[in-house]
C-alpha cells in the first residue's frame, strides 16, 4: 500500500458517501444517472466475485472495503430506482448502457491476462469501469448543469482513478509491478474526466455552478 492508493481508495469512498448523502438528504436523485450507478454496481460485483465464491473471513480491510463498495452501490441503485424513483430523471439519463456493456464484455474476452472465468470477469469489470461514468456526463450535458454536490461527487470519483495512476507509477518504479490492462483502462477513465476537471477547478472552486453551454 502506498499513499497514492490510500488516498485513491479514500477518494472513492468519499465519492460513494457524497452521492449517498446527497440522495438521502435531499430525498432526490435529480441530476444523478441511475445507469452509471448500475454500471458501477456491476463493476464491483464482477470484480469482487471471489467474495461470494469462498467464505469471506473479514480479517482484513481489503475484504471489508469490497463489501462496503458492493453494498453501498447496490443501496444507491435501490434509492434511485425504488425509494426515490419519482425524482429519477429517466428522460435525460438516456445513454444506451448496452453500448458500454457489450463492447466491454467483448473486449474482455479478446484482451485479457488469462482466459478463465474469474479473470475475464475482472477484466470486464476494469473495462466497464473506464466508461461507466459516461451516462452521468451525458446526463449533465443534456440538462446543461450539475448541482454543486454532484460536482463534488464527480471530482472525488474522477480523482480516485487519477490517484491510482500515480500509484501505478510508484509501484512500477519501486516494486516493478505492472498491470497493463488496469493501467490503460485507468488512463482512459481519467481522460474522460478531463473537461469536467477543468470546469470544476475553474468554476466550482470559485463557488460558481457548472452550467454547460446548453
Amino acid at each position: 500500500m502506498n499513499i497514492f492508493r490510500l488516498f485513491g481508495d479514500l477518494s472513492h469512498l468519499a465519492a460513494i458517501a457524497i452521492l449517498l448523502l446527497k440522495i438521502w438528504k435531499t430525498r432526490s436523485c435529480a441530476g444523478v444517472s441511475g445507469k452509471t450507478q448500475l454500471l458501477f454496481a456491476v463493476c464491483f460485483i464482477t470484480r469482487y466475485i471471489d467474495l461470494f465464491l469462498h467464505f469471506v473471513s473479514l480479517y482484513n480491510t481489503e475484504k471489508v472495503m469490497k463489501l462496503i463498495y458492493i453494498s453501498a452501490s447496490v443501496f444507491t441503485c435501490y434509492l434511485i430506482f425504488f425509494k426515490f424513483k419519482a425524482t429519477y430523471d429517466g428522460n435525460h439519463d438516456s445513454m444506451r448502457a448496452e453500448f458500454l456493456i457489450v463492447p466491454a464484455a467483448g473486449l474482455a474476452c479478446l484482451i485479457n491476462t488469462k482466459f478463465d472465468a474469474i479473470e475475464i470477469l475482472w477484466t470486464f469489470s476494469i473495462y466497464l469501469e473506464a466508461v461507466a461514468i459516461l451516462p452521468q456526463l451525458f446526463l449533465i450535458s443534456k440538462t446543461g448543469e450539475a448541482e454543486t454536490i454532484t460536482s463534488h461527487y464527480l471530482f472525488a470519483q474522477g480523482s480516485y482513478r487519477a490517484l491510482y495512476i500515480l500509484n501505478w507509477i510508484y509501484r512500477y518504479h519501486y516494486e516493478s509491478h505492472v498491470d497493463t490492462i488496469a493501467i490503460v483502462a485507468g488512463v482512459v477513465q481519467t481522460i474522460l474526466y478531463c473537461d469536467f476537471f477543468y470546469l470544476y477547478i475553474t468554476k466550482v472552486v470559485k463557488g460558481q455552478k457548472i452550467v454547460l453551454p446548453a
Binding site: E62, K114, E119, D179, A182
Partner: peptide, 10 residues
Amino acid sequence: GGSLLHHDEL
C-alpha cells in the same frame, strides 16, 4: 505480491 493473476488492488 502473490501470483501474477492475483490482483491485489481494489
